[in-house]
Each structure stands twice: as C-alpha cells, then as structure tokens.
Amino acid sequence: MITKILTIWTRIEAVLIGLCIIAALLVFLGGAAVRAFAPAYSVDWAEEVALYGIIWATVLAGSSLVAEGRHLHTEVFLARFSPRTRAVIGWAMTGVATAFCAAMMVYGWQAYSFALLLDERSASSLRVPQAYAVFLALPVGMALILGRVALMILSGQRPFSGVVHLRETEEL
C-alpha cells in the first residue's frame, strides 16, 4: 500500500518537474526568439518566468531525490565503525536531516508570509508577487520531503541513507 503511494507520488512529482522545466525552456527561448527577430515586441519577463519554473522544479525534485537516495553525502569516515554503530549514527542523521527540513518548512513559511506582507514584486513589467513565485517554493518543497520521509519510515526504509531504491525508480 505504502509502496504504491510512494510510486504514485514519485510519478506525480516527475510530471510536475517535467512540466516546470519544459515550460521554463519554452518561455525562455520564446522570449529570446522575439528579442532576436522582432525586438520591438520583446518582453522583459521571459527570463524571470523561466527562473520561477526552475526554482519550483528544483524544490519539487528535492523530494524525489530523497526517495532515490540521491542527496549527496560523504561516507568515508563511517567505514571504520561496526554495522551496528553505523546503523545508530545513520538513524541519528536521518533524525537531524528531518528536523532541519521541518525547521526550514516553518521558517520558509514565515518568509513566504512576510514577503506577502511586504508585497515585494519582481523587477519586470509583470510585477509578479515574489511571495508566490519564489518564497512559497521552499516550505512546499520541505513539506514534500517530510511527507516522503514519513512514508518511507512506515515502509521500513531509512530516508537520507544514500541507498538507491532501484525497484521504485525502475517503475517510472
């Protein structure tokens, strides 16, 4: 059941990541084409909007990277410990990482609310509210990581272990 949820979750995320990045690419190149071939109609927001797509794709991918054990970490110093000690340290680090993501979710939400209050706008003529376009991405990304962490623990996996769970990703 949980494995199924995780698989569907990964698939939805993959679709969203792909949509964000491909939209970013098309908007960006569209803006470039207009600027190169019809400068009188050039817009000042193509780059900015493309960046929003990339920011959101980046934070969305953070959760999938947890599922696939692909967040980078070092392992050199742990090699000398016994498997048991390593397991204990491993779970401790999972706890630390989870706590950090929770903290970033909370402070990220505060930053989002504050940007909303300040009414900060982008520098282009779109005047995009930065709260939604940029700051909301962090708490959402962290919340997704936390949800994923909970499900992984329930299904007996250790999140942030750096072990690639091939079975899950192969289904993509």
Partner: peptide, 19 residues
C-alpha cells in the same frame, strides 16, 4: 535597468528596451 517604469518609457520613445 530592470524597472517596469523605465521599460515602459523607453518603449514609448520608440526604442527597443531590454531589461
């Protein structure tokens, strides 16, 4: 400079502004 007001003014003057 990236400023909507500047871009709007330059456009109005007939130039092709690019923030």
């Amino acid at each position: 400079p990236p400023s909507p007001v500047v871009v709007a003014i330059m456009k109005e003057m007939g130039a092709a502004p690019q923030a």
